[in-house]
Simulated assay, not measured.
Amino acid sequence: MANTAVKKSMLRNVYDRCSAMPESIQPRLLSFIFGRVVKFFGTAGLRFELLTPERSIVFLANRKKVQNHIGGIHAVAMGLICESATGAIVGLNLPADATPVIKSMQIDYLKRASGAMRAEAWLTAEQIELMKSAPKGEVEVACTVTDEDGKEPIEVAMIWAWVPSKRPEK
């Protein structure tokens, strides 16, 4: 009988280990580890407030190193929190033999943001099942971004694809 168990991704293994820790330190621990692997996440000072297979929230404080010329969070940093929030839950749900790839990132800047920002992303049960069962595919990951005042200064559309990690031999 063949072993049909799906091998977990590195991110899923880290997530499972962190989930065994006290709840109060899980976001900080996940943020630290993620920042060591995804260097730009750590460099920008992003942190997870929540990470589950269905939902993630990434926080970015309005600090000097991520500011634009008028003291707000830079446009590219706003994109980074969206890419990080959506990419983390995609990576968390893919098996070890799949590679996640951002396919499309549409950002509409609607109004000036105030202070720190949060990106909240989520997946449906159907999207998660597709990622676990299809060797390649794509999903649009829902994501909402809010600033300190609770406003939504940007709207985003994030499409993630996944492909087999190893290309088939010809």
Rank of each mutant, 00 (worst) to 15 (best):
S165Y: 01
N93S: 06
Q26R: 15
M105R: 00
V101E: 02
N3H: 11
E152I: 02
V66M: 07
L50W: 03
A157V: 13
G71R: 08
I25D: 05
M105E: 00
L94N: 09
K132W: 01
M131D: 08
V66L: 08
A75F: 05
S114E: 11
I25S: 10
E148S: 15
S24P: 00
R12M: 13
P27F: 14
A85E: 05
S31F: 11
E155Y: 02
K136I: 02
W122D: 06
W122H: 14
C82H: 02
S19V: 04
G35Y: 07
P100D: 02
S165E: 07
F34H: 13
V90G: 01
R167P: 01
A98G: 01
A157T: 11
N13P: 04
L123P: 06
R55F: 00
A98V: 04
A44L: 14
K39D: 00
T146Y: 02
A20T: 14
R63T: 14
I159W: 01
E120D: 04
K136L: 10
L92K: 09
A88H: 12
R28M: 14
I102F: 00
W162I: 03
E129Q: 13
T99Q: 08
R36M: 15
R167N: 07
P22D: 12
N68D: 14
M1V: 08
P168W: 02
K170N: 03
M105L: 13
W162L: 03
F32P: 06
L92Y: 09
F48R: 09
S31G: 15
V141P: 01
V101L: 15
P153S: 08
L123W: 09
I57C: 12
K7A: 15
V38F: 13
N13T: 14
A88E: 04
I73H: 01
M105F: 06
Y15G: 10
A125W: 00
E152D: 03
A116G: 02
L11T: 11
P95I: 08
P27A: 10
V6K: 15
K132L: 11
T43G: 03
A116M: 05
A134W: 03
T4L: 15
S24C: 03
V38E: 01
I73M: 07
D108V: 05
E138G: 02
K7R: 13
G72I: 05
T86H: 05
S19T: 11
I33A: 13
K111F: 01
R47Q: 14
R167E: 11
K39W: 06
F41L: 06
K170M: 02
D149Q: 13
V38K: 02
K65G: 00
C18G: 10
K166A: 09
H69T: 07
G150A: 07
M158F: 05
V156D: 01
S24G: 04
K39V: 08
C82R: 01
G137W: 04
E155Q: 10
Q106N: 10
V14A: 13
K151F: 02
E23F: 08
V6D: 00
V141T: 12
R118I: 04
F34G: 07
L29W: 10
M131C: 06
K103H: 05
C18I: 15
R167I: 02
K166N: 02
R12T: 12
I89W: 00
C143F: 04
R36A: 11
A2D: 08
V58F: 12
A5I: 11
G72S: 15
G115Y: 10
